[in-house]
Design a protein around this nucleic acid. Structure first.
Length: 405
RNA sequence: CGGUGAGUAGCGCAGCUUGGUAGCGCAACUGGUUUGGGACCAGUAGGUCGGAGGUUCAAAUCCUCCCUUGCCGACCA
């Protein structure tokens, strides 16, 4: 992508009311823009990041035979009444009426619909154990939305639902799921802990939370206080037979006794996860993206593009080559002050940066800068491609190329 | 819902104590000089000061109510 065709929505100054560092950087780097409390627009750059995360999640979910579906967000209140969660969720549920005054809710999670799906398609019992998942917008009428995207009224979640024939089988699925979650978060460079949790409104069986620890500075009466916050980015539940009993989903054993289906559900808060990653990967200049989810992995920064035709020409060539090689490359092909270019590129956190200047092209060389380590290296122009590929391969054995979406 | 801040140009802010008809920086536009780290000079444009009501000759400024919004608590993922 070139900046002349793909504007950045960067902001120089810290926005008002952005207390948390992740919120500040998300707003400043043009990932999101606030519409009102708890509601955000995902700008071009942010949407790229979202897509990369979704791609990684899909990749790993498919590895454990997860099957992707898409359920409605707008759901009849009836089914929620039946499960007893209309009352349980209470005011957190968004409730709306249609023109005939029929009652609906905006889904915060989907146990009701998925169990209904199984009940209506008993043939599916032949495929059990089975795992469904979806990536979808969810709604929660928060009392107090806060920390930007971390607690918002509308958010994107990966929710998965498993169906097993026995408790033992469910436990096996649960373990598999836990393992794959670990892989997903590691891939994204998130440090996390797994903690035994209380099921809340979702279930009453065994459940575990994947939490990150966030350190946020807070000015309390001029005394700087470091506040540690737990942030839940994933949650897995063994629901057992709770919902299948309510929905009456069962098979029969040899003695014609009812055997209820064992269910599990598994969530990852995707939009929140992005904030968590930024909380853990930043410095005073901005975000430091891990390769796997950086909106762009490589930038090309030409110095004095106006004066030096040759700089421009070579930059164009390098840009084209990276594009052909399927690297997500960002080309700063605009006449701009060098300071501004570097600040913007560093703020949005592109991990690998290539600087093309008159200083080095005389010797057919260019400069490489690593966003994370700050390391600077001089390369022959023709050697830079190999080097970038080497770094990217080392950090990501699985090749998530931009075409797979 | 309790506690506590904030709302003035696209963004970040000053002005409010002591009422006299709105200013600074950045961004935008014009011209010029610069430019390997958010530059400089000259000029232009942009505001029913969150809203409604009240006090007053006169309100961004004082009073009342409302709206929006940040943080703490409670609640939640």
């Amino acid at each position: 992508m070139r900046i002349t065709k793909y504007p950045l929505f960067t902001i120089k100054e810290k926005p008002q009311n952005a207390e948390l560092i992740s919120n500040e950087y998300m707003l400043r780097s043009g990932i999101i823009q606030k519409n009102s409390s708890g509601l955000y627009t995902w700008l071009p750059l942010g949407y790229r990041i979202l897509k990369k995360i979704k791609r990684i999640i899909r990749y790993y979910m498919k590895k454990i035979n997860g099957i992707e579906i898409y359920m409605p967000i707008l759901q009849s209140s009836e089914i929620w009444k039946k499960s007893g969660r209309l009352k349980l969720y209470g005011k957190e549920l968004f409730k709306i009426n249609d023109r005939k005054k029929k009652k609906f809710i905006l889904s915060p999670t989907n146990e009701e619909i998925i169990t209904q799906l199984i009940k209506k398609n008993v043939k599916i019992f032949q495929n059990i154990p089975i795992l469904f998942f979806q990536i979808q917008t969810k709604f929660r009428d928060e009392i107090r939305p806060s920390y930007g995207v971390i607690r918002s009224k509308e958010f994107i979640m990966k929710d998965a639902y498993s169906f097993d024939i026995s408790k033992k089988s469910l436990q096996k699925t649960y373990k598999k799921m836990s393992k794959i979650y670990k892989k997903i978060f590691k891939k994204m460079n998130v440090q996390f802990k797994i903690e035994k949790a209380d099921g809340g409104n979702i279930g009453d069986g065994l459940s575990h939370e994947f939490v990150t620890i966030t350190e946020s500075m807070q000015n309390i009466k001029k005394k700087k206080k470091i506040k540690k916050k737990k942030l839940e980015i994933g949650h897995i539940f063994q629901l057992g037979v709770k919902y299948s009993k309510i929905m009456n989903i069962y098979t029969k054993d040899n003695n014609k006794n009812k055997k209820y289906i064992y269910m599990g559900c598994y969530g990852i808060g995707i939009t929140r996860l992005i904030a968590a990653i930024i909380e853990q990967n930043n410095d005073h200049k901005g975000i430091i993206w891990p390769n796997a989810i950086a909106p762009f992995t490589v930038s090309i920064i030409p110095i004095q593009i106006k004066k030096n035709k040759k700089v421009k020409l070579i930059s164009e060539k390098i840009y084209k080559t990276f594009k052909e090689q399927n690297i997500d490359v960002f080309f700063y092909d605009k006449i701009e002050r060098t300071g501004i270019i570097f600040s913007e590129i560093e703020l949005i956190g592109i991990p690998h940066n290539i600087i093309v200047s008159n200083k080095y092209i005389q010797n057919k060389e260019l400069e490489y800068q690593n966003r994370k380590t700050g390391e600077k290296k001089i390369f022959k122009i023709k050697d830079i491609f190999k080097y970038i590929h080497k770094i990217l391969k080392k950090k990501s054995r699985n090749n998530f190329t931009s075409k797979s979406n």
